[in-house]
Every structure is written in structure tokens, then in C-alpha cells.
Amino acid sequence: MSALRPMGSERWWVWLFLLPTLLGLALGTFGSIFATIGLSFTNWDLLTPPQWAGVDNYADLPAGRMFTKAFWNTLAFSGLYVPLTVVLSLVVAIGLNRRIKGIGWFRVMYFLPAVCSPTATGLLWNWIYAPDNGVLNAAVTAVGVSPVSWLGPRMALYSIVVVNVWGAIGGGMIIFLAGLQAIPKEYFEVTRLDGATAWQRLRFVTLPALAPSLFFQTVLTTINAFQAFDYIYVLTSSGNGNSTMPTLVFSIYRSGFRFFRMGDAAAQAVVLTAMIFALTLVYFRLQKKWGEA
């Protein structure tokens, strides 16, 4: 590592080469972040010049029905989606991290949803969840339970979480598989000699060794959770551009691009970003604590 650290005058060159990227980052990413923050303090309808609105856009958020509904939906969705995705993709990765015949086929199967178009898989799930002709209700009624409105108001959250988790397991699995395969096999052999149980192996070898992957995956999954859109749109969007289970991204899009309320949309986007940022900070803290335990 230390041999690769630039010394003295080399440092200057490093900065020079990084400059284009850094500028792009500064203008692109940070520029748009600051622009969004700036816009959130204005009333802007896209067509006429923005007008200063102070904190009105933020102050109005708690009373906005579309926003509050979307806010709680997003929280509930993320609260279920993040732990389920991380845990299940870890479980699948551990299950598939072995050398048996046809394992590659299994891995492909789990990864398949990640490479399919959300619209196509959304249609598939629409069929699974369909109230009368649906696969799921056929199964449910076969065991004598009355059919469920899977995408109706009561179940939509859970049904949507299932689809999104299903779609995300493959990606998480790849990260965890890579992490698992990077663990030297000697660690497991030591525990075998030491007489550790499977649970102890997981607890004391696998999980600590996967800590970086777990952290990375949790942050990524959280960001994805707060920005989830595709499946939700395909499965729950309604005739007037709303959704049975509108999330913040939905609300931001609708406010800004359909209702001429860019300032309001910007404020919602800032809240969304702040939530992601805050959670990422919490994860960083946890990782530091965990990493040094």
C-alpha cells in the first residue's frame, strides 16, 4: 500500500489527472445537489422565474397529504425492504457458496431478476397478484382461504416489498458471494479444528469477514429502497398518475413534472436525500464500532 502512495512532486500530477473527474463531480453531482437545495426555497413552476419562498415549501410538507402518505409509505417500505434484502441475499449467497454440480445454474436463477426489465417482470407479478385469474389467489383459494386483493390498499405494501426484495436478491447475492469467496478457507478449517458449530462459524468467521460487504450492501440497499420506483410504478400506478402505494419518488415526480411545483418537489427531494444521508451516517458509525469490536 504505502509504496503506492504518491510522494512529493508526484502529488501534483495526481491532482492534475484527477482534476477533470473532480470538476465533473463538483459541477454535476454537487452542482445539482446545491441547485436542488436552492430551488427548494423557491416557488418555481418551470415556466416563470422562481420566486423566493423561504422555508414555506418545507413548512407545508407535513400538511401535504400526498407527501405525508408517500413519506410513511417510503419509511415502511424501506424498513421492510432493507433488512429482508440484506438478510435474504446473504442467506442465498451462503447457500450457493459451495462447489456442487449445477451451482452456476442456481446462481444464474437468483441473478436473473436483476437483469430482466422491471416492466417485463412487473407484468409477471401483475399476473401473480391478479385478483381473479392470479396464480397466488389460485393457490390461496385452493387451500380454502378467501382470495386476497394483493395490490389493494391493505396488502400492497407487503406485495411490493416481496417483488422488490425478489428483484434485489440477485445483486446482493453477487456482492456477498464475492465477499464469501474472498475469505481464505483456512479460517473455516481453523474453526473446524476448534470445533465450532455452524452458527459459531457464521457468527465469528463469516459475518466479521463480510462486514465490509454487509456495510456496502446495506448502504446500497437503503439508497435503492428510498429511490425504488420501477416495480412500484408497474404494479401500483393508477389511471391518474398516482399509485396505490405512492412513495417519495412518486410524489416528487408528480409534484414537479405534473403539477408545476418544482420548489415543492425540490424540498421533498432534499428531505429524501437527507434521510438517505442520515441513515448512511448511522451505518458508518455502526461499521466503525463493529469493525473495531
Binding site: 481464505p184 483456512e186 478449517e189 481453523v190 473446524r192 479444528l193 476448534d194 470445533g195 469490536a293
Partner: peptide, 19 residues
């Protein structure tokens, strides 16, 4: 089982638990 054989092994890469 390995754990019942009453032996200890030292590995080339030591296999110390990093955490």
C-alpha cells in the same frame, strides 16, 4: 471429526481472525 482428534494446526497464512 477434526475437533475430536486432539490436534492443532498452524497454517501458512496463519488464519488469524482479523477482527
Amino acid at each position: 471429526e477434526p475437533k475430536e482428534r486432539d490436534l492443532a494446526m498452524v497454517f501458512q497464512n496463519y488464519a488469524l481472525y482479523p477482527h
